[in-house]
């Protein structure tokens, strides 16, 4: 059981809704993943300021909690405005806050992120900030009112998997009581299992599922890997050793050395 703000969830997989071959495939993937939270982009799925009503209706019909995001926003002001639109459209105080600092790498602009997080938290939003693995930024976000952090493990959509395991480890160690959700850069189930084994609380995926040959099957694979990674963390992972340790004693048997 994981608690984010005042909501308890059992599935540790959060799923994005962009880029699927069709809404029907998206719906299959959501079912297969057993996710309880989907994210939806307000800007990417709209044009001319008018919301994509029919698509949003399909998202609502998925029956999960909806975490709207501010994907595509490049300034704090834009992100705050988009968050407010999202609150109207989806009637939720949740917002996945994304402020992009570089159009090419989609790195978060952490300065604008902290600024927007403070404004939105003060206005009663429950902010899920998409951030880097920088500890000082993480502290500033918590000071600004965030009670969940969503660090990347690699650039958005890159499918590269965890690029800096020691940074992720120290983040976990520094914030033992803050729900940490790895938000971007996961490419395959083994990546998700890796960060879950480190003790991260959940994983948010989009492209890795949407861009797979069979998104529903991949969603199911991820769900199992995330579950396996979590169980490994809770069970206590055996750390690597420098030499072989036989699982059955060798005393009394022939030894070749």
């Amino acid at each position: 059981m994981l608690q984010v703000y005042d909501t308890e969830i059992t599935s540790r997989l959060l799923l994005g809704t962009a880029g699927y071959p069709s809404p029907a495939v998206l719906s299959d993937a959501v079912r297969a993943s057993q996710t309880q939270i989907v994210t939806v982009s307000l800007r990417r799925e709209t044009a001319g300021g008018k919301a994509g009503g029919a698509f949003f209706e399909l998202i609502r019909e998925l029956g999960t909690k909806i975490l709207p995001n501010t994907a595509g926003c490049h300034t704090a002001k834009e992100a705050v405005l988009t968050a407010k639109m999202a609150r109207e459209v989806f009637r939720t105080n949740w917002i996945k806050l994304e402020v992009i600092g570089n159009h090419d790498t989609l790195q978060p602009d952490v300065f604008a992120l902290v600024e927007a997080a403070r404004i939105l938290s003060n206005e009663g939003f429950e902010v899920f900030p998409y951030t880097t693995d920088d500890l000082v930024v993480a502290e500033r976000l918590l000071e600004a009112g965030c009670r969940v952090l969503m660090p990347w493990c690699a650039p958005i959509g890159s499918a590269m998997g965890p690029q800096n395991l020691s940074a992720l480890r120290s983040m976990r160690a520094h914030f033992p009581d803050v729900p940490l959700i790895v938000d971007a850069g996961i490419g395959r189930p083994s990546h998700a299992a890796t960060v879950m084994e480190l003790g991260f609380d959940a994983v948010l995926l989009n492209t890795a599922v949407a861009g797979a040959g069979d998104p529903a099957l991949m969603a199911s694979g991820f769900a199992r890997a995330i579950e396996a990674g979590r169980q490994a963390f809770e069970a206590g992972v055996l750390e690597p050793r420098d030499m072989a340790v036989p699982s059955t004693p060798v005393i009394g048997k022939a030894v070749f050395s």
Binding site: E45, T46, A47, G48, K50, A51, G52, G53, F55
Partner: peptide
């Protein structure tokens, strides 16, 4: 490809 039924002019970003 945008999930929208708006017919208006092309967006600057697009």
């Amino acid at each position: 490809m945008i999930e929208s039924e708006t017919c208006g002019p092309i967006a600057a970003r697009s």
